[in-house]
Amino acid sequence: MPAAGVATIALIVLIVLALVYYLLNTILQLRAINHGLDEVIQSVGEIVEKSAPVADVVHDINDNLDAAVSALEGLLVKKAGMEDAVGLVDGLYPGAAAEGLRDFPESREVTPPRIGEVYTRGTLTLARLGREAPVATASPAGPALRNPAYGSAAARDLYPGDRPGRSPVIGSDAPVQYEEREDIGQPRKRFRRA
């Protein structure tokens, strides 16, 4: 056989060997890809299965919350009036008056009264308890009492001295009786007629 024939056969064998080597490796890689995609499909199937009821449940929750918001807004406006309702909402959530009440578009045009800027809810609670409420000691020229971020700290700052170590005691058995009057318990004064 001539040398050219041997070279031809050798080249053909080399081409076949190259094809076999690379195609086998490619097949192995494609099998690995196939196995990985099987895992992906299984996980995606779990995701689809687990997330299927989410939409219905969330819609139901939103519907319930929408109904509650509508009822509470209506009740608030009915009982407090539009202006005070907006003021109360703005007091609890500063800036909320700009968005207004959801079911009352006209509430966006209401200028909220300064309900929330003057009294915190805690201050109002203390005010109900008696004279030790910080409302009585605050300077009207000072800054607004409301401090949404540090409400309790702001309330403590209102005491000129140390904060009392006790809550105010009210009632007939209280150690300190407010509105003390000397004539309480004494015979009723009688005025003679001229």
Partner: peptide
């Protein structure tokens, strides 16, 4: 596959 499993 890892991300899908974590999401699941």
């Amino acid at each position: 596959a890892g991300a899908a499993a974590a999401g699941s």
